[in-house]
Design a protein around this nucleic acid. Structure first.
Lengths: 124, 124
DNA sequence: GTAATACTTAGAGTTTACTCTAAGTCAAAA
DNA sequence: TTTTGACTTAGAGTAAACTCTAAGTATTAC
């Protein structure tokens, strides 16, 4: 399957602007047809979804760019990419733990408020 | 215990600029001495730490401001504050789950790279 | 044959949350 | 007495990651 930028935009949930921006920034490589029109493939979809996972974990565009560059070069950059991922993982684990703690704090706060307000309201 | 802005800045890990900015935005109320100098208390510290937890969970300044305003008004705004917290909690739980999934994805990626690179390198 | 969709470059605008500068005043500590 | 640390207003600057506009061209679908 291949997709136009309009179709692809809906599939991956990124605007056409953003897709062109990501391409310009070197985050994706996209094939073109005879008329220079972008042809997105399922491979592109997997790649973008992978990037979005990295983005979800708070990776900066700068790092994603570096990762993509290395990916485009080929197998000889695997160690670099692995090092980048491992290094990033450390930060994500910390962030995850911090979020867990803050969520706990939030739950405590909510419990406190519910107790203060008494049992005159049903809680959900 | 009370603290000057300089001391307090170090304790809570926010710059003096940011502390003044937060005060101007209505996120904190700070007492002053006879010379108009800010006097931070342990109560201020607890409040800031609480705000930082909310910030950690991705709450916007706008929402923190609203929360703080209601807090300054008093007990009659408890329901509003509880509603805000509960509503925010929903988003945080979603975000947390997304982060968990993306971390899992990252781990899979790392495993993949480690397998590809073979067992010639010790992994940690 | 016209509307929809795509393409280009180049640069401007947006949002959030700070972060800093300037320019001047004031009070306490060494 | 001079350095240090505090204060004020008002506004400018920064960074990231988009997001959009303009202005013009080209191709495809109905």
């Amino acid at each position: 399957m291949t997709y136009s930028i309009g179709e692809f935009s809906k599939i991956v949930g990124l605007s056409e602007h953003t897709l062109r921006f990501y391409e310009k920034e070197g985050l994706i490589k996209v094939n073109r047809d005879d008329n220079n029109v972008r042809i997105y493939t399922d491979e592109n979809r997997l790649w973008i979804e992978s990037l979005l996972h990295l983005k979800n974990t708070g990776m900066s565009l700068k790092d994603m760019k570096q990762f993509a560059m290395w990916g485009h070069i080929g197998d000889e950059t695997m160690e670099e990419r692995l090092a980048l991922l491992k290094n990033h993982r450390k930060k994500v684990v910390e962030e995850f733990e911090k979020l867990r703690q803050s969520l706990e704090h939030l739950d405590n706060k909510i419990n406190f408020y519910e107790n203060e307000l008494g049992d005159c309201f049903s809680t959900n």
